[in-house]
C-alpha cells in the first residue's frame, strides 16, 4: 500500500489575512469618511439647496416636521408658540444662535411663523439646514 505524505493543515491563517486587510481598510474608511451625529428623535428629509454658508457649532436645533410641528429637544410644539420656548431655552444656554432643520415638505408658513417667533425672542438670524443637490 502506498502511503501519501499527509499535508499538515497549516493554511487557514494565511487565507484569513486578505480578509483582515480588507476589513481594516473598510474600518479606516468609515472612520475617516463618516461624521458622527447624535441621533435625533425626528427624521426629516432636508430641502435641497446649492449655497453653503458653512456655519459650524450651531447649538440649538429646531426641527420642523413635514406636518408643521416644531421640535425643540424632546418637546413638540406648534410653530406659533415656539418662539416663547426658544426664548426660555436660549436663556438657559446663553446663546443667540439657532439652527432650523425643516422638512422639505413642511409648510413654508410654519417655517416663517417659527422665524417670526424667533425674531420676537431676540434671534436676528437663523440658519436653515439644507442638503446638497438641486
Amino acid at each position: 500500500m502506498i502511503e501519501f505524505d499527509q499535508e499538515p493543515p497549516k493554511r487557514q491563517f494565511e487565507t484569513l489575512i486578505p480578509l483582515i486587510n480588507v476589513v481594516f481598510l473598510l474600518l479606516i474608511f468609515f472612520l475617516l469618511a463618516g461624521t458622527m451625529q447624535p441621533a435625533e428623535n425626528v427624521a426629516v428629509s432636508l430641502p435641497k439647496g446649492a449655497l453653503n454658508d458653512k456655519e459650524r457649532d450651531l447649538p440649538s436645533t429646531l426641527i420642523v416636521e413635514a406636518d408643521g410641528f416644531v421640535w425643540l429637544g424632546d418637546r413638540v410644539m406648534d410653530a406659533k408658540i415656539a418662539g416663547h420656548f426658544v426664548k426660555q431655552h436660549l436663556g438657559e444656554e446663553g446663546s443667540r444662535r439657532v439652527a432650523v432643520k425643516a422638512d422639505r415638505d413642511a409648510p413654508a408658513e410654519a417655517v416663517l411663523e417659527l422665524m417670526e417667533g424667533l425674531r420676537e425672542a431676540g434671534v436676528e438670524q437663523v440658519t436653515l439646514l439644507t442638503e446638497r443637490g438641486s
Partner: peptide
C-alpha cells in the same frame, strides 16, 4: 468596530443657509 462605524456614521453632507428672521 466596523459594524459600529457603519451604523453610526452618516454621509449626508448638510449645508447651512443663514437667513434674517422676518418682520412680524
Amino acid at each position: 468596530l466596523l459594524i459600529f462605524f457603519m451604523l453610526t456614521t452618516s454621509f449626508l453632507q448638510t449645508q447651512s443657509l443663514a437667513v434674517v428672521t422676518p418682520a412680524p
